[in-house]
């Protein structure tokens, strides 16, 4: 069975794994991880240029925007206005209108502020952006984001950087079932099985940063994540067996000696 590719805002991707570019020891390590992950999209942040240390390495010199789709994020933004300002700068810096919106509520949880997130989505869509939205796993807000015109819904599996996996698979599944745009679990993945769980729920992709960057061997974990996403996707497409309460022998009962 041949799978359909992932299509986000008309762009076709063969990889369903999106990776971040934060927390790596070096950009060089980051580039090797991206390659091992088979990622086609990488998230990036927008920050003030370093005016004092001009020799500081630049991300674009290691992950070429010609080879990877840059997905500018709004990490660190706590209001819709800050997020919109950041993404307008990102659009000017890179010329891309595909963006990752995240409007956070507090430093301790980095939980998405959904009222501000929805407001920012509406304003960004109006301004011509193609918005992939980091959001809570609330199916009602997910529907509102889709109605507002977002191009991908990206509910958290668990808190950003927590590595706690998919904490509410029931809600993720509800969002998958109701959505006509891709659903990508963003945040919370800790190890390969978490990514597989997300994909087995029918998600269209997984976005992760810390699970790879803070692994003992980030390059090997990137490769593991690539396989986990493929495995989870294939398991979802294959359709899992029914769960049973008691044993069901695999060998025939007839002909026993």
């Amino acid at each position: 069975m041949v799978d359909e590719p992932l299509v986000i805002a008309g762009q076709v991707f063969s990889s369903r794994l999106i990776i971040g570019t934060g927390k790596y020891e070096t950009y060089e390590q980051n580039a090797r991880a991206a390659e091992a992950a088979g990622a086609e999209i990488v998230t990036v942040a927008v920050r003030r240029v370093n005016l004092t240390d001009k020799d500081k390495p630049l991300l674009v010199d290691y992950l070429d925007p010609k080879n990877y789709v840059y997905l500018p994020n709004t990490a660190g933004c706590f209001t819709a206005d800050d997020a919109i300002r950041t993404l307008r700068l990102a659009r000017e810096a890179g010329g891309w209108d595909l963006v990752k919106l995240e409007v956070l509520s507090d430093q301790k949880t980095l939980y998405p502020d959904m009222a501000e997130t929805l407001r920012a989505t509406e304003l960004l869509v109006e301004d011509g952006f193609k918005v992939m939205v980091y959001c809570s796993d609330d199916p009602v807000y997910a529907r509102r984001l889709e109605d507002a015109g977002c191009v991908a819904i990206m509910p958290l599996g668990s808190l950003i950087g927590s590595g706690l996996g998919v904490q509410n698979p029931v809600n993720i599944r509800l969002i998958v079932e109701q959505s006509d745009v891709p659903v990508i679990v963003d945040a919370g993945v800790g190890t390969a099985s978490d990514a597989a769980v997300a994909m087995e729920l029918g998600c269209d992709g997984v976005l992760m940063n810390t699970a790879i960057a803070e692994a003992g061997n980030p390059i090997l974990m990137a490769s593991a994540m690539k396989h986990a996403v493929i495995a989870g996707r294939e398991a979802y497409l294959a359709g899992r067996m029914a769960k049973k309460r008691y044993a069901d022998p695999s060998s025939p009962l007839a002909g026993l000696i």
Partner: peptide, 28 residues
Amino acid sequence: SIVPRSTFAETRLCDGDHIEIVCFVGGG
């Protein structure tokens, strides 16, 4: 206000201007 790259050369700075210069860095 964003200064489009195409207008960098013709945009003159004035006393008291507040300038922000950003670039892409690693992020999740």
